Computed example of a mutant assay.
Amino acid sequence: RVEANKVPGCAAQVWLAVTAADGRLWFAADSDSALSKGNIALLLKLYSGRTPSEILAFDARAALDRLGLPSALTRQRANGLNSMVGRIREAALAAG
Rank of each mutant, 00 (worst) to 15 (best):
G38A: 05
R61E: 15
S83P: 08
Q76C: 00
W26H: 15
D30P: 05
Q76V: 10
A29V: 09
E3Q: 08
P8E: 08
D32I: 02
L81V: 03
G96W: 00
L43M: 11
M84G: 01
F27W: 14
A91F: 10
E3Y: 14
L44H: 06
A60N: 11
A95S: 15
E3C: 07
T19I: 05
D30H: 12
A63G: 11
A92K: 00
G9M: 10
A72R: 15
L16F: 06
G80C: 06
G96T: 00
W26F: 15
A34P: 10
A60F: 08
L64T: 13
G49K: 05
S53M: 02
K37G: 14
I55S: 02
A91L: 04
N79D: 15
D32K: 08
A29Y: 11
A57I: 10
A12W: 01
K6D: 01
R89H: 10
T74N: 06
N39L: 15
R66H: 09
S83E: 04
S31K: 05
R75I: 11
R75P: 00
A57H: 08
W26N: 03
T51S: 13
T19C: 02
W15V: 01
S48L: 12
A92E: 00
A29S: 09
L25E: 01
Q76S: 07
L25G: 03
K6L: 03
T74D: 06
G9P: 00
P70Y: 06
S83T: 12
A95T: 09
P8N: 07
Q76G: 03
L56P: 11
L81I: 14
V14S: 11
V14G: 04
A21D: 14
V2I: 02
V2T: 05
G86H: 05
A11H: 06
R50N: 01
C10D: 03
K45C: 09
K45N: 06
R24Q: 12
L64C: 06
R87F: 07
G23R: 07
R66S: 07
T51F: 02
A92Q: 04
L93V: 10
